[in-house]
Design a protein around this nucleic acid. Sequence first.
DNA 1: CTGAAAGCGCTAACAG
DNA 2: CTGTTAGCGCTTTCAG
Lengths: 351, 351
Amino acid sequence: MKKRISIRDLAAQLDVSVTTISFILNGRAEEKRISAQLVERVLKHVKEVGYRPNSLARSLRTGKSHIICLMVEDIANPFFANIARLIEERAYKSGYKIMYCSTDNSLVKTREMIHMFRERHVDGFIIAPPEGVDEEINALINDGRPVILFDRTLPQVSTDHVMIDNAASTYLAVKHLVAEGFKNIAFITLDSLQSQMQGRLEGYERALREHNLNFHIKEVAFTLDEENTIRHIAAFLQRKKEVDAILFGTNYLAIRGLKAINQLKGQIAPKLGIVAFDDHDLFELNSPSITAIAQPIEEMADKVITLLLNKLNSLNKKKPNQSVLMNTKLVIRESSKGAGPELTVVSRASS
Amino acid sequence: MKKRISIRDLAAQLDVSVTTISFILNGRAEEKRISAQLVERVLKHVKEVGYRPNSLARSLRTGKSHIICLMVEDIANPFFANIARLIEERAYKSGYKIMYCSTDNSLVKTREMIHMFRERHVDGFIIAPPEGVDEEINALINDGRPVILFDRTLPQVSTDHVMIDNAASTYLAVKHLVAEGFKNIAFITLDSLQSQMQGRLEGYERALREHNLNFHIKEVAFTLDEENTIRHIAAFLQRKKEVDAILFGTNYLAIRGLKAINQLKGQIAPKLGIVAFDDHDLFELNSPSITAIAQPIEEMADKVITLLLNKLNSLNKKKPNQSVLMNTKLVIRESSKGAGPELTVVSRASS
DNA sequence: CTGAAAGCGCTAACAG
DNA sequence: CTGTTAGCGCTTTCAG
């Protein structure tokens, strides 16, 4: 209804030029040697009429928006939701707003999103990228828009990264299961070539090889819905009766796997060792409580936003890219307790 | 690096006026009787050079943005994360993008957010509002920006709503617990005056009153962190030894409550009846599995986005406001099984 | 069918 | 210190 007030109206009402007002509003009064009393008069009036500059116009003019785009695989996934929350909080404190969106790991959707955010002059990007968007992301970087990648890398893209040591995480988890006496450790993962999943697979295989144990790998199609994932996992477990422990590659695979195991009660080994990737609020309550590889979510969020703000504040100076590799923590609970520890002790600690 | 191409460049390259290109790009070629062959030439070239109109400029000019703002209490809360996900998906299919943000139930933050989104010409709002933003939201509505409220109402605001029947939900949950033989049913809730929490409280009280049972209400401060919430709940349960069942007012209270109960093993009644508000992925896996009041998330997301799109498509026609009240579903699992059903059967079914 | 031109609201170079 | 003015890139009216 009511027409928004513009800087022009303000100028007319105050009998001052728009330039002056613009300078005052942008904190350049001193620099431009505008009298303190005028500054005060303007500020007072601005407050009275509740004027707020149109940020769209400002953005169009300056190319800046104070908005950061956060693209994750699925905002309903607790890992991403929590990290998004923390990033939003920290960004907000530094005067930035966050626009987030889910990529669904879809190349097409991600491309479209990148385009649309770029058009809207988003200042920087934090992305957990699907495979294949290397080109678009490079275009972004060449365009001078800072990009931080997290959770996974992209082969062709060179920029700041925040990652966990996936291979070391699964490696140590498997060692733990072996130490607990498990012999036939399965790895239930996704059929994904993404770097983080490949890393997890690598750690699993390396640990098994070191102990001369057999691989039991089940790759679930990424596109499968919950119900079908459960069915596939259940079928796998029924077929592989020898499996005595499972390492799950992602948080939702673990949950779906637990449901599958639940349905199979009595049909499979009663005391299956279990380790999940990503911790979960309810894992400690489960019986048995579930051992999990916990990602350092707070530190990751912190690092990601710090790196981005740094880049944002030193746009022209080409700094070398930083690649941050973080350690996970194996939270040991009841689900990975085995018959008893083996005697084999291996001293190699990291990947 | 590379300068973005503008409609002006296009016009020069094609030796056609910007107007013509603009019309063609906006699908008004026919209406403006532009020759099919010219249309084709332009479209072909646009595709070749990969031109994409600057949506910021377009937005500044038209006042539209094809962006919807979704404000929830906390995007890391599974209920909100899941509904956000569904809304995003459906909006996306209709050509709208979603910007979401968490309000933290903070009045100040919410106000600021509303201002900033309004400035950026967001087309419509979907809000789960904190108390006290009535004024800002009314300003939005008066400004012609469609607003849909969900999860809770605001006393002073009249617009479309999507809500569940909170009172009926807790009422039926309590009846169920009573039928299972529980006598001292506690309600652990927030110290919040928000409509949805008040509704839940009301249903609880009504059911107890009908059965002449004692109230056992614990209001946890909204601002408490996880650890302290657990401590408060534990203290409450230790003090009230007579409590034999608990109804939790929100999903995270239920989780924190379960953790408290877990810590108190042995110190309190071994077989506490439990019902949670909001279902959760892992509730069916818990032992005992947890009975929950499940909100119809998909239907809610559907309804919310449908209502908003309707409003968006008929901006001037003032339609009467729609208030949608949805039913929840009590998913009965092991945690609410009591000693045995009582003989009392009450026939009133809804609130 | 097409072109010129007027803004949307703001910033900032330039000229007093 | 302050005002004029030229755009940012697009849509749209109005006049060919």
